[in-house]
Nucleic acid binder design. Sequence first.
DNA 1: GTATATGCAAAAAGTTTGCACAGTA
DNA 2: TACTGTGCAAACTTTTTGCATATAC
Lengths: 143, 143
Amino acid sequence: MNHQELIQQTLARLQAEGFKSTLARRATIEALVEATDHLTAPQVVNVVHKHHPNVGRASVYRTLELMAKLGMLQISSLGAATTTYLLTGEGHHHHVICVSCRKTVEFDECVISELEQRLAKEFDFQIEGHLVELYGRCSSCRQ
Amino acid sequence: MNHQELIQQTLARLQAEGFKSTLARRATIEALVEATDHLTAPQVVNVVHKHHPNVGRASVYRTLELMAKLGMLQISSLGAATTTYLLTGEGHHHHVICVSCRKTVEFDECVISELEQRLAKEFDFQIEGHLVELYGRCSSCRQ
DNA sequence: GTATATGCAAAAAGTTTGCACAGTA
DNA sequence: TACTGTGCAAACTTTTTGCATATAC
């Protein structure tokens, strides 16, 4: 699926939930779709402003909040002090993060699915996503 | 292990790394030890100020940063917009978080250990902790 | 046409920094 | 004593809010 399609689909999902398709929302989704990694809110604002200088910062925040509430974003701390956002679905992967130099490496394996199903039953949750991060010390930082 | 012992041990770990044992650090650790759940930085500051009104806010932030760097804290976004901290080790558990009402339930099972060992070898990381969070919609919010 | 959503600007909240002084080792 | 760490206050960054206007449906 290319970017335009993904943007369309994401907007459609918002519409399906009863929210309107607007420029500010499209611009925010655009920024998230183009990102290859987690972005902080101010980073999203920056990207949005590159293409659409007239979109307000508050609208970006409001869109991020809305999408997070709908489970459309993966929210992560990436082991750092700032929250970051990434579109869920597509390119599912997780991170190993060095607590010393903040270097991150990705891995694709996900051992969560069985657990997910068990917990969904146990707590009567409809699971929509998950976050798995490992923290440690990379080889250079252990010297 | 009781609270006092855990505080001592945590301070000792700082000292082992070459950092001094001070009141501000003890107060911060105290707050984290007493917490039964993740705390935001401002919450830690509040607890510290209850017992030690004269400890500066900046010192608490600096201690949190230091401990995070040393891998002594589990950092989590809890699916919300603020970073939270919890002492690692002790009472290891994870959360299922409702993206709609923010209700969280805990679970103890952890399927990460095998994965952890495999990734440690593959990327030459010394893994010190991990974060696993599931996001979804609780039964009441699905009505 | 109507309700939702927006942009702006100001307020609030959270975090970081510089510096003179204090406390640990 | 030497140097790390502190408290304070100010600067800075990030996030939220109120409100008049614009826009999607």
